[in-house]
Design a protein around this nucleic acid. Structure first.
Length: 306
DNA sequence: AAATCACTCAACCGCCCATAT
DNA sequence: AATATGGGCGGTTGAGTGATT
């Protein structure tokens, strides 16, 4: 059977058809090699979110979660393993990493908890808004490169009506794009959703579901300032002031290392580790986590997550 | 040229959840 | 309230293909 050709002798259920459309037939799917930038993003987001392919896919427009998952399993996972990094935990297998960065790691874990909760809330709110507002569909259609085609399943839907506490994470970036969003959706609807969500406490339940034991302390009133601002991330997460934050190209170093390592994939992993001192290893790992933090801090304004 | 191996990726599976009946 | 249906998601499979022996 030719790749991509359905087996006509095998009847497909509706679910199978939908899946085929979602993962293969959709016109707005980008095919072919992943770019370095896309690899960067996948590695960094996987370190933050784990195997949440659909969440990762929202950051890679025109790539499906299935494609990202396959690419991770067939390429990136091996590459990390060859470098002596556990692709699950993103920590070195010898356990030397993060001796001075355990705090960062803990904070990233905390961030991941926040992100999990935020995704829950976002999905729920988008769904509710869509049900209630044809204007939102109109907004999404205008945002699409294929306005006449079916709605891409994984296409980011733009700034979504987060509860205040979630909106606060994005800070100025969200504010910038949200004005455009409000023009299309109508502020009343958004406000209603936010208020309703706040009143119902649903997102607090989502926080509890995600393992945040005491979500009460994260009420919007207590955390209105943008938690994900650069300043906050630098001081609170890295444990030092922003002047110690790595430079832009510094943040690229480790993922560049990963990408470059693909050239000698298969035999370079061991030697890379053998001739590197512990200090080099720590530095690489430091860069690795810094790059993730940098991604968090520098995500484009249209990012639905940060 | 044939056999074997390694790799890719679309498709399938099972689970969970939301909604409809 | 119970059941059916459909969608979303992550994990896994296996057919196809190219490289190697």
């Amino acid at each position: 059977m030719e790749a991509g050709e359905p087996c006509l002798s095998m009847p497909r259920c509706g679910k199978s058809c939908r899946l085929r459309w979602t993962n293969y037939l959709r016109p707005d799917i980008k095919r072919g090699k992943f770019t370095s930038q896309e690899e960067h993003t996948i590695i960094q987001l996987h370190a933050l979110l784990g195997n949440r392919w659909s969440a990762i896919a929202t950051h890679l427009q025109k790539r499906t979660d299935n494609e990202i998952k396959n690419y991770w399993n067939t390429h990136l996972k091996k590459r990390l393993a060859n470098m002596g990094i556990d692709p699950v935990t993103h920590k070195p297998k010898n356990g030397t990493l993060l001796s001075g960065h355990s705090k960062n790691s803990a904070n990233l874990s905390h961030m991941a908890q926040w992100e999990n909760a935020r995704l829950e809330a976002e999905a729920r709110l988008v769904k509710q808004s869509k049900l209630r507002s044809p204007a939102l569909d109109s907004f999404q259609a205008q945002d699409s490169e294929f306005p006449s085609g079916p709605s891409p399943v994984h296409k980011p839907v733009g700034p979504s009506p987060y509860p205040d506490v979630l909106k606060g994470w994005i800070g100025g970036a969200w504010e910038k794009t949200s004005s455009s969003f409000l023009e299309h959706v109508g502020e009343g609807i958004l406000t209603d959703e936010l208020e309703r969500e706040k009143d119902s406490g649903n997102y607090l339940a989502a926080l509890r579901d995600e393992g945040i034991d005491n979500p009460v302390q994260f009420t919007p009133e207590l955390h209105e300032p943008p938690l994900f601002s650069t300043e906050w991330a630098s001081e609170s997460m890295l444990g030092h002031t922003s002047e110690h934050v790595p430079s832009d190209n510094f943040a690229e170093t480790f993922t560049d290392l990963l990408l470059n390592n693909s050239c000698d994939e298969g035999d370079g992993g061991e030697s890379d580790n053998s001739n590197g001192s512990d200090g080099d290893s720590c530095e690489g790992n430091r860069n690795y986590w810094d790059s993730i933090l940098n991604l968090v801090n520098s995500s484009p304004s249209d990012s639905p997550i940060f």
